[in-house]
Design a protein around this nucleic acid. Sequence first.
DNA 1: TGTTCGTGGTCTTAAAATGTCCCGGGTTAA
DNA 2: TTAACCCGGGACATTTTAAGACCACGAACA
Lengths: 350, 350
Amino acid sequence: MRNLLEIQKQLLPDLMETLKRRYTILHQIMLSDIIGRRTLAASMDMTERVLRAETDLLKSQGLIEIESVGMRISDAGRRLLDLLEPIAKSLFGLDDLEEKIRTTYNLSKVIVVPGDCETSPFTKRELGRAGARALLGALKGSDTVAVTGGTTLAEVADQLTPPLSLSYKNAWFVPARGGLGESMEIQANTIASTMAKRIGANYRLLHVPDLLSEDAYQSLAMDANIGEIVQIIRKSRIIVHGIGDAMEMTRRRRLDEATIADIQGEGAVAESFGYYFNEEGQVVHTMLTMGLRLEDIIRTEVVIGIAGGKRKAKAIHAMLRFGQEDILVIDESAAVEIGKEIDMQLQQVL
Amino acid sequence: MRNLLEIQKQLLPDLMETLKRRYTILHQIMLSDIIGRRTLAASMDMTERVLRAETDLLKSQGLIEIESVGMRISDAGRRLLDLLEPIAKSLFGLDDLEEKIRTTYNLSKVIVVPGDCETSPFTKRELGRAGARALLGALKGSDTVAVTGGTTLAEVADQLTPPLSLSYKNAWFVPARGGLGESMEIQANTIASTMAKRIGANYRLLHVPDLLSEDAYQSLAMDANIGEIVQIIRKSRIIVHGIGDAMEMTRRRRLDEATIADIQGEGAVAESFGYYFNEEGQVVHTMLTMGLRLEDIIRTEVVIGIAGGKRKAKAIHAMLRFGQEDILVIDESAAVEIGKEIDMQLQQVL
DNA sequence: TGTTCGTGGTCTTAAAATGTCCCGGGTTAA
DNA sequence: TTAACCCGGGACATTTTAAGACCACGAACA
């Protein structure tokens, strides 16, 4: 595959450029559901006229449909994009990055989506799509999947679409842990139920308030209903989790000053599943809530970590050092940063 | 390998052409050992200047060497040609096939779409698109177009989109013949009206039941309204028709056993416009219904035949022998079969 | 030694690509 | 229901690129 492109590059030196451009346009249209020419031109940093030339071509090839409300991707275009995905990776040089990270941390799969989540909402969406695909790739008919909260996971849930053939009637979605003080849409409970509904699976919720006192924790642990769902959670075969910057999470969860200082003092840089990790990937702080424990995570078959953005690179790196990830889905900006850190490590070794 | 090329054809239709051109030039230079610009330009039917642009590029890519005695291929160029050989086959494969069929049966145009209708619905769609394009290419502002029924023609109707500039306000679509006992969506009447609506043209329908008795036929022929529309049909400048396998059509039309045996006995392999043709392209059976007659077809300016699938190759071939087609739109699998038959004929002649 | 055929340069012209604006129509938010 | 907004498509001036036409000069060859 790669081969043919290399061959063609010799006869068509500008092939790659054109291919990239058209792919990006088509891709952007796909992500936008429906979008107008001017808006798209602005977001892609092209003048209106040249974009128009391209979209006219895409239309004549039947890859997009142009209506009075804007342009949308056609079925054929969608198929083409799917086929093009791996090629695009090598076009944008992301496959090298994927491989580097994969081998360094011994993961089974690394997926890097082009772009930067922090600057482009489309990249976030794309990250969600990639995460959703990764999940479906790992999901068998009767698995239990534990999911965490967060905006990224919410995006994954939104982008989850079932393949036509398989049925997930016997699959279960559960939140990985109890409430951790975030808004409704990005609660693990909400996300678990959304995902389950979207692919026709089942879900169980864990209704535990956040910021439990020790006493409350103990009494809830005795509750039969809660105990049952916690058992289900702890036996999940798949975990899908976001990765957060430690300090940002403390703020988002409105922890009290003392706790924040505490966590910061211990050098926490990353947060996931309610645990805080330092740069070396060691757990330095635990939030008291019910659900998955560290030992469960360690024995879980498939751990899928999803995150994006340059600011999260350090946190993602910490989770990689923690060493429990199997599949990592990140964006290009984070991947580039991680790639740099890997290079620095190698230099230190030499 | 094949795959990527097909993808590129969709996204980079313009580049594929230049790829072909450059390949041919390089190939020619290789065959010529050493050759001058003017000589080469003449042999390739290009002006000197455009050839020069190409050879300059080939030189800058290090694929040829230019000396004062002329141009010769470089080692890198030779290697590239070797690598490109199998790709070139598929790049040109269809073109060669088109040309072979075109010249053998003296058609004005042959279009072969890649793939196989029988295995891929996308190919069927592509066949429809190609058929629609062929029709629009032949259609002038105030033509009358007669269309037959069938799933392929229905696909053509679906894929018909008007070019932005032209108006077909004065064009007419009519069914080629009366009802021939098929389901609503693939009736000639339905297709004629769909096509007309899609490009803003007019249509007239021919409401004649199928399986007419001789008496009924005679009395309908007297009807003024029917007579009028029949007159319009018979004066069509363009005919767009599908081509069917004879036996399959008898089944689809639920003919009675006696008739089927009759048709089979006469060696019918193809069906179109309600006529059945044997392998030599001779009419062996006629369905009694109103509309286009054979003599009309013969004098029609543009006859566009559209069909696809390996199983229909024999039928298509019979229609080619019938000798009234001007434009043929088929899929690759049928084209390959027809190509084989042409080769066999040639061998018999030798 | 003159002729022929080659490349490479240049100038003009034709054509294509591009930047920019505007219009009428449809959608959406108020 | 209305007004604002954004859409696609048309138009057009302008820039950029491709193409055509010639010519100069050098190497090979007869």
